[in-house]
Design a protein around this nucleic acid. Structure first.
Length: 615
DNA sequence: CTTCTCACG
DNA sequence: ACGTACGTGAGAAGT
């Protein structure tokens, strides 16, 4: 046995690295004893983050409590794996920081199914996100083990990630190669692997105490663990990539990007991604570029370029001026280039041996609790055009089904702000924006009126003002001003609720507290965001609850992606109608007397086939 | 590392 | 009293 000692919060802790069968017997005896006392802290060290890559290896599995850690060298195989697996299988409860990652590692590489481990896990990252959901870039502490340990456990706790990076460099390795190549017997590697579980074991009681202190309900903590488990299932399942189509598409997009880049080069733009070069070349052609970015540079974004190229939002000729050929070439080269690198090529790079893509689904990514999907970012595939979504397929013999909530954020606003007229419109099944347009503009309202009513609705949900609503909707400022005043007369409850929510947030230490008890920090300078936080966060929780209901209805194996107000599902072709009905049923509910419902579309084999179908 | 741009709900 | 669009992930350029 190799043993290290270290100081944590003024106490000496022990890190054991078993090397023989007898050492492993000691480990097993410790685990049985520790298990009787409470959850065992658990962590893994691996070769990287690409759990589904064929290069990926599990290196160590660490177990610990507040004073002792055991670093089990999984990579050595044989007994090391047997003992680790025995504890993982027989242990009652585990503490993990960011469990979704270790669940997927242990599921895929250690034969410990997600189904077995997830229900026995308490995740300190979820607890931390419920205490403060902000990312470090937004002024939050961050939900990494390092900043949390430094704050709650020991300010002197080593930065194990940074420390290891330095160790990698000392061995001629990098951040990219170090995790895979650092020798298994490396002193610092083992010390830090062990320290992480000790810090984790010490962190959890502090987080539990803080959740208690803040009055965060146990029910919410449990709900988030369920959601995390369902998201981990979706991630494990993944989506099939149409590799032949995607390869061909990637080639085509690369050609197109190249062709238009060559065109742009004729006008002196060597790099179509350089806004500075484009601005200079356009100015040289006599174009007037009055718009500036926040930092004062010439703004040359898509909207500016479309105008110069005489194209509308759908890239069709407008016939209002002579198209600028450089603007046209830059637009097309940039779009093809972005689609090629960000989507098509990323799909090909991230596909596993079984032809599937496993995006990282993060259930508590946003401050409001909204989920995010990354690597690849499947929530942001272009929807204006089906070419990218066509890369992704339903399972063999299946079709894609998607179901969207109907105007969910407006309905949440109607419910939470108790807007009388809006609630009765929803109850009677009227189209909300038609109904509003009639109240605001009278029975003779036009399509433009409906569009403005809808834009004002969004403005209310986002906390926008007259200027932005005017800019977004294209309606003249004065008209928006009048309509906004009429809107406030029709739905006076919105302003009252908005100021109440801001007042309550001030009273709760600049924290918005949603109906489920979620705490959302509110920036003093943007207190109007309180309304958006209430609506966005509650809509997220409606989606989350519907996912749990879908699991209860036996639909978990069919779920593919959550996309804010939409769920993407792969359904056996013959049962698509039944599945669609069942999904919609799970998304149909009542929020304080307001009906929340959804509508489904049944497509073909590819996600892109859903494009353009009526909901 | 920050800024800009662009994809989504 | 007034006015404020919300939330993400990703690639590239430039400092």
């Amino acid at each position: 046995m190799r043993t290290y000692h270290h100081q944590v919060a003024g106490e000496t802790v022990t890190i054991n690295i078993p090397e023989t069968g007898e050492d492993l017997d000691q480990f097993y005896a410790w685990a049985q004893e520790a298990d009787r006392r409470g959850p065992i802290a658990l962590d893994t060290e691996t070769t990287g983050l690409e759990v589904y890559s064929s290069q990926f290896r599990l290196r160590t599995v660490q177990f610990g409590d507040r004073s002792t850690a055991w670093v089990i060298h999984w990579e050595r195989g044989g007994e090391f794996q047997q003992f680790a697996r025995a504890v993982l299988t027989h242990g009652q409860r585990f503490l993990i920081h960011h469990a979704a990652y270790d669940w997927s590692v242990l599921d895929r590489h250690a034969g410990i199914p997600l189904e077995s481990l997830a229900p026995r896990t308490r995740d300190t990252r979820i607890m931390a996100a419920l205490i403060d959901p902000r990312q470090p870039s937004e002024g939050g502490r961050g939900t990494g083990l390092k900043p949390l340990s430094a704050h709650w456990v020991d300010p002197l706790a080593p930065d194990t990630q940074d420390g290891l990076l330095a160790e990698f460099h000392a061995h001629g390795l990098t951040k990219a190669t170090g995790w895979a190549q650092i020798p298994l017997h490396n002193h610092l590697f083992n010390l830090y692997a062990g320290l992480d579980v000790i810090l984790l074991a010490r962190l959890e009681p502090h987080l539990r105490g803080e959740l208690d202190h803040l009055g965060v309900r146990a029910r919410l903590v449990d709900y988030e663990h369920q959601i995390a488990r369902v998201c981990a299932h979706m991630q494990r399942t993944g989506l099939i990539l149409d590799e032949d189509y995607t390869r061909e598409l990637s080639r085509r997009l690369a050609d197109e990007a190249e062709r238009f880049a060559t065109e742009a080069a004729r006008y002196g733009v060597a790099n179509v991604n350089s806004t500075r070069q484009i601005a200079e070349a356009l100015a040289g052609m006599g174009e007037h570029l009055p718009e500036r970015t926040a930092s004062g540079q010439v703004k040359v974004d898509k909207a500016v370029l479309l105008q110069l190229a005489d194209l509308d939002g759908q890239w069709s000729p407008r016939g209002t001026r002579t198209p600028n050929p450089l603007a046209n070439a830059v637009l097309r080269s940039k779009r093809s280039g972005k689609w090629q690198t960000t989507y098509a090529q990323t799909f090909l790079d991230s596909v596993d041996d079984g032809g599937r893509i496993h995006p990282l689904i993060s259930p508590l990514a946003a401050r409001t609790g909204r989920m995010s999907i990354s690597r690849p970012a499947l929530q942001t595939l272009p929807g204006s055009d089906q070419t990218i979504r066509q890369c992704l397929l339903a399972d063999e013999g299946h079709v894609m089904v998607s179901a969207d909530f109907t105007a969910v954020e407006m309905r949440v606003l109607a419910s939470l702000a108790d807007i009388k007229q809006m609630k009765s419109a929803i109850a009677s099944g009227n189209d909300l924006h038609d109904f509003t347009a009639e109240l605001v503009f009278g029975p003779g309202f036009t399509k433009a009126h409906r569009k403005l009513a809808k834009a004002i609705g969004f403005g209310k949900v986002y906390g926008g003002g007259c200027a932005t609503i005017s800019r977004q909707s294209g309606a003249p400022y004065a008209e928006v001003e009048r309509a906004l005043a009429a809107y406030d007369r029709v739905y006076p409850e919105i302003r009252r609720a908005a100021s109440r929510w801001q007042r309550e947030a001030f009273g709760n230490g600049m924290t918005v507290i949603t109906p489920v008890g979620r705490r959302i920090p509110l920036d003093r300078s943007r207190s109007y965001a309180a309304t958006n936080y209430m609506c966005q966060s509650t809509a997220r929780d409606l989606l989350g609850q519907s996912l749990l209901d879908m699991e209860a209805a036996g639909l978990l194996p069919l779920l593919r992606l959550p996309i804010h107000d939409e769920v993407l599902v792969s359904a056996p072709a013959k049962e698509a109608e039944d599945v669609a009905r069942a999904i919609v049923e799970c998304m149909t509910t009542d929020l304080y007397g307001v009906r929340i419902d959804a509508s489904a579309s049944i497509g073909g084999r590819s996600w892109g086939s859903l494009y353009g179908l009526a909901a």
